[in-house]
Design a protein around this nucleic acid. Structure first.
Lengths: 148, 148
DNA sequence: TCTTGCCTTGAAGTGTACATGAAGGTTTAA
DNA sequence: TTAAACCTTCATGTACACTTCAAGGCAAGA
């Protein structure tokens, strides 16, 4: 499979695949007689793995650290486990933050006025009053994140 | 409250607060007689809102779009709702992708060998065999993302 | 009065993760 | 045989989200 097909199969641009190879996020890719990359399913799997971890917010740098460790000859299962667990913790925190933001937006959405007769000005007034109330109630609580 | 205190209270750098003001992610901040920013709890709340949305992956550009719409005088509740729902969908997808990656890593972690006597080479052999098996079984399935 | 420590603005610099361009090679189809 | 459509490497460019720097002002304490 040439790089274009691999790109289509993975949704990763050809340039990005070359970049990943250069940065050792994927193993060195075999070349044909004329020097073109010949990509097999193993590489495809690893490109997809990179994509998934990138989407989960893992940096190129950390991904390389992890992959280097995994590909190494030495017995570093412990370190691998530690690294995995570290990354898991980061991702779980990220997921929880994301969920908190989702809850926040859902709350806002559920408290929107469905009746369009209210003017935005009225809405803003109500929001302001709410904000003032919240200020009075929890000025020192310091855990408010609502926009208004 | 001066900008340094606000920075400490929010965990956002002074420079970033100035940047957010310049980019209209937070409202114009009042100045003291000598021109220093005087930051109140309303601004603090909005900084935290920005932080939360940024952490959830919303870009500065989209955040500004959203805030502009929200702060506008016109009655655009419909557009606000649509924008909120759009952002919610993006975030939920992100959360699900993240959860998939977490599951993936958890799987790997749970299948790690706890007995350290196996050498990394043996481990790699097992992984290779597994990969080959998976290749045979689902070469065309095209949904594998495991690293080995 | 002079140092310390805060603040201001505006401009320029930084790191990440690619994207794009230049210059050239190969294969296929008309 | 010439164009189209791939490919290669290497170098440079780009977008985003800040950070850092430069040049200066204000206020308090030694």
């Amino acid at each position: 499979m040439n790089i274009k097909e691999a790109s289509e199969k993975t949704g990763v641009s050809s340039a990005a695949i070359r970049y990943y190879e250069k940065e050792s996020l994927i193993p060195p890719i075999d070349r044909t007689e004329v020097g073109n990359r010949d990509i097999d399913t193993r590489i495809i799997r690893r490109i997809k793995f990179v994509t998934q971890m990138r989407a989960a917010g893992m940096s190129i740098e950390n991904l390389r650290r992890y992959i280097e460790l995994f590909d190494a000859q030495e017995d570093n299962t412990k370190e691998q486990k530690a690294l995995l667990q570290e990354q898991l913790a980061v991702m779980e925190e990220k997921r929880d933050d994301l969920q908190a933001a989702i809850d926040h937006l859902n709350y806002k959405l559920n408290h929107f006025y469905d009746h369009m007769q209210e003017t935005e000005e009225e809405l803003r007034e109500l929001e302001k009053q709410h904000a003032a109330k919240v200020d009075r109630e929890s000025d020192a609580k310091n855990d408010e994140t609502d926009i208004h």
